[in-house]
Simulated assay, not measured.
Amino acid sequence: MSADTAIRVLGVEKAFQGLPVLRGVDLDVPTGSILALLGSNGAGKTTLVRILSTLLMADAGTAEILGFDVAASAREVRESISLTGQFAAVDDLLSGRENLMLVARLRHQKNPDAVADDLLARFGLTDAGRRRASTYSGGMRRRLDIAMSLIGDPPVVFLDEPTTGLDPEGRLEVWQTIRTLAGKGTTVLLTTQHLDEAEQLADRIAILHDGRIIRKGTLDELRALLPTASIEYVEKKPSLEDVFLAIVGPTD
């Protein structure tokens, strides 16, 4: 496994009670890139993420994170990754800052106060840092959740449908957070059902269907699979998202 590849999956299979979910998945994710794993419900996206994050054993095949085998070197893999699930795992009774300090202590950081303050600043939550998380909007909760997962600066981050249940503003907040992560060199594997999310964020896209990766490549490479439509005149109308943001104003 070269230094240019952060995640490598070869022939991974998984079945539950005799029902195949993954049927030989092959996948490479370049270091410092965002890969969007697209698929409908039941396609096997979360199962693959759970295998890569050492929460589930594959029935066959191999997977490596930064050269560490997820089965044979699970401890090293866990030290190299972070996983954010579909729903924000924050404690509503604690403030944003207290949530961050709690995780920093659990991960044996030397200065939890400084770690919390740095992440609040990085994720635009400083002003809300001393408020209870229960008062946060959906986008703020998700940003806090991702911030908590980054304590210790893991080089590889798994985001399993991170915009589930968010309104348009919240989605845009999370999108910007993901762009910032990749801009700092973090490798991101993002699972999503939303085509626009993959289009906006991903360097490369993989389509998981019926337990297999059936297509993968850049957006331009995938677009090239279809013939170009001939259009003589296009009148661009504002999208619903444009209208919504123009009415409500910029995100706080």
Rank of each mutant, 00 (worst) to 15 (best):
S2P: 13
A3I: 07
A6N: 01
I7H: 00
G11K: 05
E13V: 13
K14N: 05
G18S: 11
L19F: 13
L19H: 15
L27H: 01
V29I: 07
P30D: 00
G32H: 01
G32I: 10
L35Y: 01
G39Y: 03
G42M: 03
G44V: 10
G44I: 09
K45Q: 06
T46I: 08
V49P: 04
L56E: 12
M57I: 12
D59Q: 11
A63H: 10
A63C: 11
A63Y: 10
E64P: 04
I65T: 02
S73P: 02
S73V: 00
R75G: 06
R75I: 14
E76M: 09
R78K: 12
E79Y: 04
I81M: 03
L83V: 15
L83Q: 09
L94Y: 10
S95L: 01
G96V: 11
R97P: 06
L106E: 09
R107P: 08
D113F: 08
L120N: 01
F123W: 09
T126P: 06
T135M: 10
T135W: 11
G138P: 07
G138I: 11
G139R: 06
R141S: 06
R142S: 01
R142G: 03
L144Y: 04
L144H: 08
L150G: 06
G152T: 09
G152S: 05
V157N: 02
D160T: 04
T164Q: 09
L166S: 07
D167N: 06
E173W: 06
V174R: 07
R179C: 01
T180N: 12
G185R: 02
G185M: 00
L189W: 05
T192H: 02
L195R: 02
E197W: 07
Q200S: 14
L201K: 04
A202F: 04
A206N: 01
I207A: 06
H209A: 14
R212M: 12
R215Y: 12
D220A: 15
E221G: 07
A229Y: 03
A229V: 15
E235H: 12
K236E: 15
K237F: 13
K237V: 11
L240Y: 11
P250E: 14
